[in-house]
Write a protein that binds this DNA or RNA. Structure first.
Lengths: 126, 126
DNA sequence: CAGTATCCTCGTGGATACTG
DNA sequence: CAGTATCCACGAGGATACTG
């Protein structure tokens, strides 16, 4: 497993009042971007999943984005890439331990989002 | 308090496998962007804070970004803007209830980020 | 099948100047 | 003091074609 470069030097990009190293910014950067969360959700729901399977399930994602997102997630230790040298090649991605730990946090987050939504427009339900 | 437009129609921008409405994406979008988190952190630490005070504390932020971020946060009900009609004008921003509820979630998140950091490079401490 | 390689668009965010 | 108004740079993300 390679060393997560992004984590080492994350310092709130020096705009955050919380000192030199900000674990919050660091955490956010790990799941930032447009596709990381959807990927994590998909892997959480369905377990080990192949590349093209992911591409089908995550509506709208392109090869470029899927490949690069998977690479980042893997290099940060959030997902595992397992390659079976069959013919043709088979590659499966799955959530790694740290990502599993993240799930409950994301759930809390989603819960908060839901509360926001419900109390914001209790009547204006459409 | 105005109605948060972003919340109403948040649907994972249709790339997330979690159905038509995704509270997680909705939540993320509320604190997304480069400066919302730093602003929330600053307000959490120091309580009600004036515009220029915020600008000084949040290193590197510009008027454009501070103003627009504050506006979004306010329109989504995350912060309160209170204006004192003194001379010259005084405006103070503070965290609203929903944002207070968010703090513990963010703390959990930060904790996870810290764990990631510690276990990722336990020796390569610099 | 599981990706790379290129090229390009567009929106976030930055710089600067100005104002009620 | 607390912002707006403009203009602009850049990089994340998208489209398309190709490959081991």
């Amino acid at each position: 497993m390679s060393t997560p470069e992004t984590l080492k030097k994350q310092t709130c990009t020096s705009h955050c009042p919380c000192g030199t190293y900000c674990p919050l910014s660091a955490a956010l950067s790990l799941i930032g971007g447009k596709w990381k969360i959807p990927i994590i959700c998909a892997l959480k729901q369905d377990g080990p999943t192949r590349y093209n399977e992911l591409k089908r399930k995550i509506t709208g994602i392109t090869n470029t984005m899927l490949a690069s997102s998977l690479k980042e997630l893997e290099s940060n230790g959030l997902i595992c890439r397992r390659q079976y040298d069959e013919m043709p090649v088979r590659v499966e991605y799955s959530l790694a331990g740290p990502a599993e730990d993240l799930i409950p946090v994301l759930s809390q987050f989603a819960l908060w989002g839901k509360q926001m939504h419900d109390q914001a427009a209790p009547a204006a339900r459409e």
